[in-house]
Design a protein around this nucleic acid. Structure first.
Length: 680
RNA sequence: GGCGCGGUAGCUCAGAUGGUUAGAGCGCAUGAUUCAUAAUCAUGAGGUCGGCGGUUCAAUCCCGCCCCGCGCUACCA
């Protein structure tokens, strides 16, 4: 393996439209912090970079809803996030923000370089424009009726009611969120990063040179590469963000995905104005991005393509992305308030930063989505942290206080068993190292816990409290060995549980900074060295604490259920009799029906309309099988403009009644009539 | 529908380039112990390694099909 001179570690920039929750922590910040703390302990040259991602449309929308400016929104959340990370012991070397001057300049310069080098392509496209507000509308700024579920408040990119992904042009009755007017299509031009031109080297770089990446990351990349990369717009028509640094680009900003990863660079510049370049441009820097699985494509494909297009930059050596954490069996959701918020946890569980760090690491979603439950939190605290780690330390220290007045006793000859026990220390050290360096933090933590287990077993087997009646010299040896194991714990746990490790170091009177090289050593504490008062490393978490949290979540659930009580859609605006008479609705009978291949919802129907025999494609396969349909009499909108669906021309639309929940049934005459009877 | 990741003890997860008894922690049972926050230590019970086929002397691990969970993506006039 290559011997790197320095390590640049980045953690995904949190989006500043809400606080940080346990999902973010388990996926990104806890593992990244463990990795960085470990590297520092080993004396490596390392910088840990993060900051708030403060641009993009959702922030402007939140500002509009609250009647404040986007800057107010990001100021608020930036502070909450930064403060909660600090209190939680996430040891960034810098936590800055993309609204900083440095970032605006860095991002603009990056764009300019690529622009001057001809790395972009310029393309014109038609986009919705609000004539009153005189601006182009981002997808999120257009609301309309969802073509899929009929929700009248679907956004231009997504319907939050049925969850489907949309494009603004699909919305029925689109209107601008700014003026409420119907937007018009207008031509605009944007710059695109032609990812397709980067496909070849990306393919080699990832698929051949980085087979060691985690399977989820590698597989996701392969999937994208095999699907063929498309050019991606790097600019948007919006007034919140980094202005596009070109004369003819008024009202345009860098698209947030282009702007945000450059934030890693900007924040490094802010931290090290004079020597940042060696961290980003020297092959002897090992760069690692910690992210969640939703960010894989940006960090493995898009950002590397940007860096490569620029030319001077190194590429990440690894991108250890985690999966998602669920909360009590449900997806964590900011909008549904289904989360454990870090700043609230810190207030409600003072002094228990490490408990959360422990639980989130021990149960981290490293290979698949995992579930956080408060019961598990309690169990892990009480039967692992308290019973194994805290208890062992307490036993060793209390026994020493009792028999040797709190001074480390001398070793009077080691037995074979003592030596076998001490021999385990370097073995565990090596295992922890290997696991951390390959991003197996859960396993590494387990090995650290094995140090404490080793200590408990040693005490149980040697029984110093019995020997104290007969052989104090042997007791001295036993407690020396036990305390050395405690001292080892104080080093090994530092990356995982920094607060408790600090507390333990104080208790053991270890005043200097922890050094990783000392781990595995059987003589860290000198004989005669005075310990401090014994104090408990961890307290039990009581049932009442947990029940309070569960009740809090239950209240959220109840509130959410009340909020989404299904109700039928409001009435649409009036139409005229003439409008209605334009529609030619007829009875018809289904002659043949078959599934449209490679679709979930589509049936291809051959129907007798009384006028002719024609084909209609309809999205009803979830509710009707082809066999159900054959022979059924139905009503159709006969004079609907034909449209190609999955390559098949559909000549009309079947009338369906649909419940708010989504269930659909055919609308048909009460008794069978002839085909072609008009409905009105 | 396509693609990716996952489906291993009651729970949370390791693991094996295919090879004699598949591992850990928690939980459970029994025993030991009392220095310790009733904390610890030992022993044990508990798994046709998602289902069905195939390749192989041998498959939980390879191949095919299917089912389930998560994600990306297509379709719904």
């Amino acid at each position: 393996m290559k011997n790197y001179k320095r390590h640049l570690v980045t953690a995904a920039l949190p989006y500043a439209n809400g606080p940080v929750h346990i999902g973010h922590l388990a996926g990104v910040y806890v593992p990244a912090d463990i990795y960085v703390r470990y590297l520092r302990l080993r004396g490596r040259d390392v910088k840990f970079i993060c900051g708030s991602d403060e641009h993009g449309v959702p922030i402007t929308i939140k500002a509009r809803q609250l009647g404040i400016t986007p800057q107010d929104v990001v100021d608020k959340y930036h502070l909450i996030i930064k403060d909660s990370f600090e209190r939680f012991g996430i040891s960034f070397d810098i936590y800055s923000r993309t609204s900083s001057k440095t970032h605006h300049k860095t991002a603009a310069d990056f764009f300019t370089k690529l622009y001057n080098d001809g790395k972009f392509i310029e393309q014109k496209s038609e986009q919705y424009y609000d004539e009153e507000a005189k601006q182009f509308l981002a997808d999120r700024y257009i609301v309309g009726t969802c073509p899929k579920c009929g929700n009248e408040n679907a956004y231009g990119d997504q319907c939050e009611k049925c969850g489907s992904t949309l494009s603004p042009t699909e919305l029925l009755n689109p209107r601008s969120m700014i003026s409420g007017n119907k937007p018009v299509m207008r031509e605009t031009s944007h710059w695109y990063l032609p990812l397709d031109q980067h496909e070849e080297w990306l393919r080699k770089w990832i698929l051949e040179d980085h087979k060691e990446w985690k399977t989820n990351v590698y597989g996701q990349c392969k999937s994208w590469l095999d699907g063929g990369l498309q050019p991606r717009a790097v600019t948007r028509d919006l007034d919140w963000g980094v202005k596009v640094p070109l004369a003819n680009a008024a009202g345009k900003v860098l698209y947030v995905w282009f702007d945000a990863p450059i934030g890693y660079i900007s924040n490094t510049i802010e931290l090290l104005p004079n020597e940042w370049e060696k961290w980003w441009k020297d092959e002897e820097t090992k760069m690692v991005h910690f992210i969640g699985k939703d960010n894989i494509v940006f960090h493995c494909i898009v950002f590397p393509a940007m860096l490569k297009a620029h030319g001077d930059y190194i590429l990440p050596e690894n991108v250890p992305a985690n999966e998602f954490l669920n909360l009590e069996s449900d997806k964590i959701s900011t909008s549904r308030n289904w989360a454990v918020w870090l700043h609230e946890y810190l207030d409600e569980f003072p002094g228990k930063e490490d408990v959360l760090r422990y639980v989130l690491c021990a149960n981290a979603p490293e290979t698949k989505d995992n579930d956080f439950t408060w019961r598990d939190f309690q169990t892990r605290n009480n039967s692992e942290l308290v019973a194994v780690f805290g208890n062992f330390v307490n036993r060793a220290v209390v026994l020493t206080q009792k028999y040797f007045d709190g001074k480390v006793p001398a070793v009077n000859g080691l037995t074979e068993y003592d030596e076998a026990t001490l021999k385990e220390l370097p073995v565990l050290k090596k295992s922890i190292e290997e696991n951390i360096e390959t991003y197996h933090f859960r396993e590494a933590l387990k090995e650290a816990m094995n140090l404490a287990r080793l200590g408990n077993k040693y005490l149980a087997d040697t029984e110093p409290w019995k020997l104290a009646k007969t052989d104090m010299s042997r007791v001295a040896t036993i407690l020396n060995v036990s305390l050395q194991i405690c001292a080892n714990c104080a080093i090994a746990f530092e990356p995982f549980l920094p607060f408790s490790a600090q507390k333990l170091r104080y208790m053991l009177g270890m005043t200097d900074n922890a050094k990783w090289e000392e781990l595995g050593n059987a003589a860290i504490l000198p004989v005669g060295h005075a310990l401090n008062e014994a104090q408990l490393l961890f307290d039990k978490v009581e049932d009442a604490d947990i029940e309070k949290q569960i009740a809090k979540l239950q209240a959220t659930k109840t509130a959410n259920a009340a909020a989404v009580k299904p109700s039928c859609e409001p009435q649409k605006p009036n139409c005229t009799f003439d409008d209605f008479m334009k529609m030619d609705i007829r009875t018809a009978t289904v002659l043949e029906a078959e599934r449209v291949p490679k679709t979930d919802k589509l049936l291809k129907l051959k129907i007798d309309t009384g006028i002719d025999t024609r084909t209609i494609v309809s999205g009803i396969a979830e509710y009707y099988s082809p066999e159900d349909m054959v022979g059924k009499q139905i009503c159709i909108l006969a004079n609907l403009e034909p449209r190609k669906i999955k390559g098949i021309e559909s000549q009309g639309m079947i009338l369906m009644a649909k419940e708010p929940g989504g269930k659909m049934k055919i609308v048909a005459p009460e008794e069978r009539l002839c085909n072609g009877a008009s409905v009105g």
